[in-house]
Design a protein around this nucleic acid. Structure first.
Lengths: 355, 355
DNA sequence: GTGAAAGCGCTAACAG
DNA sequence: CTGTTAGCGCTTTCAC
């Protein structure tokens, strides 16, 4: 018995929220019946359903999630894990859009989005513990780098997962007993091919590529696309950037110093392309007259506001986010048996003024 | 190099997660003792503590969150509610940064981040139900507009909340019985003053303002700051934009048509300022020679890559996110009694080339 | 200091 | 169809 003289501050969390019991009493039925009604009302006679619904409304009953999870072993939540160094998430609208798509689709499935941002080893352990705790039904994992340990952890805890972007080890390459790894990615290689072919069709002869960091499969795939069309381009025609505007500018400087005769550049993302345009302008080179530029992503905030507006390869980021959720839900609903297939979404070349 | 701490390959039977009971059996103690150890180990003799810890490690025990929540009524999760029409979150790095700060601080407090994106009435009901369900210990709410209903819902369910950005109705204005509304915001008005004073010091005489949407307090506060310095500026010198680059461009067109003699513009955010710069360039006006431009936010991806780089008012977005979490945690730890005070963080004028 | 026992609110057999 | 009865895994008095 608490000492009344202490007069403990009332805690709002302990507000008496009505329970199933209360609703049952009010409706004059058993807890089980109320439970059935709350969960869809299948197999309950209509008059009773109405009685219960009425009681629920009058009491403002809302099921206790923790109690439900405890018995069903389902928590109605999905973790989104983004493992990305600070500089990118700070400046890249990519994640906002992807998350928007995920959020929408998750809402449609009545599931919650738990956001896990990973920045280093410490965070990594924390996420590991979280997954081990089985707090989420599934995982959507992003921005994996080729040296990432996350897939290992995820597969160790057998948490149903869908990756955003092709992970380094695909199912086909996995060792024995390794389940396939479902992912959603855009057709990076095909999109890159289309971009470079466009440059070729424009009559450009010395087409360079400013690539993304080689520890990301999207960057590698775009390089492959470039090489598909230009198998004979020398290695000096490809410079590696870091997907930031500043990195793009640095890469452009290096490229122009190295190959002054370049008349076109396929840049692996729009952010870098904006840096490239800046350098080109500083050097007095006209775009697209002297040098044509094509980006990748079609990040509206960047591509539409550069000078000149950027011709670029569009990928449907939001759609990819939604697709990831659908694949995961498919997996969850199928019991643990079925692994959904990966999906590669098409890209589209958007013509503006830079090429 | 693999980290050995990740290695303690736990019980091979992954599907059966060990419970307190199992740990107790293994350590030769009661469930209660294990519980005490797991929760800090206060009041348990050292040898027993060690035994239990050992058993926990060997079994790879991780507490079941749902069970714990059920009895403690604490879920160790905080909801971040962002109520923003799609166009902004799609193009504004602001949210990414704010969320990064929140995520970091939440991690430090061992709490989870549940992201709730609100886009319309339907979503609104869903969020309401979620909060009513008491699934989170607290709420961090963003991007409130003056006509927003969220504060009403939040206050109805008494969920501890901290707002990002000053809500329309502050505690001081609230009616009787309405608790004060703690928020974290930057000094919008002071920052705007500093920006405009800088323009004045530059010798500019016809200083215009391109404002944000009037249903957001940050936009209103920046207008106030502009007027503080220039109380005699005519109403034609202020044009309302929508915080997007495109909207900034439109506003600039309107402004230049209306007041051709303008020699400086204080723009309410960097995104709009980038649109303004584009229009200025298109009209053959040099920046800063003919027209000086100052933005607001110091969004690196925008301000550093415009031509010329943008002089702007910096606000510490990540720091504000962290601060919000700290205020909320303070509130949570203090029982229900204390309401933390709001915090207004300082801004800083960053000089680049546009003014 | 430690253990036994009573639930937290809900679902899911199993009876009736 | 509906009610009864067990727990889900954990914390928390309350005895010892």
């Amino acid at each position: 018995m608490p000492d009344p003289t202490l007069d403990p501050a009332p805690d709002p969390r302990h507000d008496v929220r009505p329970t199933l019991e209360a609703v049952a009493a009010r409706a004059g039925v058993s807890r089980a019946t109320v439970s059935r009604v709350v969960n869809g009302g299948a197999g309950v006679r209509q008059p009773l359903v109405d009685q219960v619904r009425k009681a629920v409304d009058e009491l403002g009953y809302v099921p206790n999630h923790a109690a439900r999870t405890l018995v069903t072993r389902r928590n109605g939540a999905v973790a989104v894990i983004i493992d990305e160094p600070e500089f990118r998430i700070f400046s890249d609208p990519f994640f906002s859009r992807q998350i928007r798509g995920i959020s929408r689709e998750l809402n449609a499935h009545d599931a919650q989005l738990v956001l896990l941002l990973v920045e280093g080893r410490g965070d990594f352990d924390r996420v590991t513990r979280y997954l081990a705790g089985g707090h989420v039904d599934g995982v959507l994992a992003f921005s994996l780098h080729t040296d990432d340990e996350l897939p290992a952890v995820i597969s160790r805890f057998r948490v149903p997962t869908v990756y955003g972007g092709r992970p380094e080890r695909t199912g086909a390459e996995g060792g024995a007993g390794t389940p396939p790894v479902p992912y959603v990615d855009c057709d990076n290689r095909g999109g890159a091919r289309e971009a470079v072919r466009h440059l070729v069709a424009l009559g450009r002869r010395r087409i360079a590529h400013i690539a993304g960091p080689r520890d990301q499969t999207s960057a590698l795939d775009r390089i492959d696309g470039y090489r598909d069309v230009l198998p004979d381009a020398g290695p000096e025609m490809t410079v590696e950037g870091d997907f930031t505007a500043e990195g793009g500018a640095r890469a452009a400087e290096e490229l122009l110093d190295r190959c002054p005769g370049v008349d076109a550049v396929f840049v692996a993302n729009d952010l870098m392309a904006s840096g490239v345009l800046r350098v080109l302008r500083e050097r007095g080179l006209r775009v697209p007259e002297d040098v044509a530029v094509v980006g990748f992503d079609d990040m509206a905030s960047v591509a539409e506001s550069t000078d000149p507006p950027l011709t670029t390869v569009r990928q449907d980021v939001e759609g990819m986010g939604r697709l990831m959720v659908r694949l995961l839900m498919e997996r969850l609903d199928s019991g643990a048996g079925q692994w959904p297939a990966s999906v590669v979404t098409p890209t589209e070349l958007i013509l503006r003024d830079s090429a």
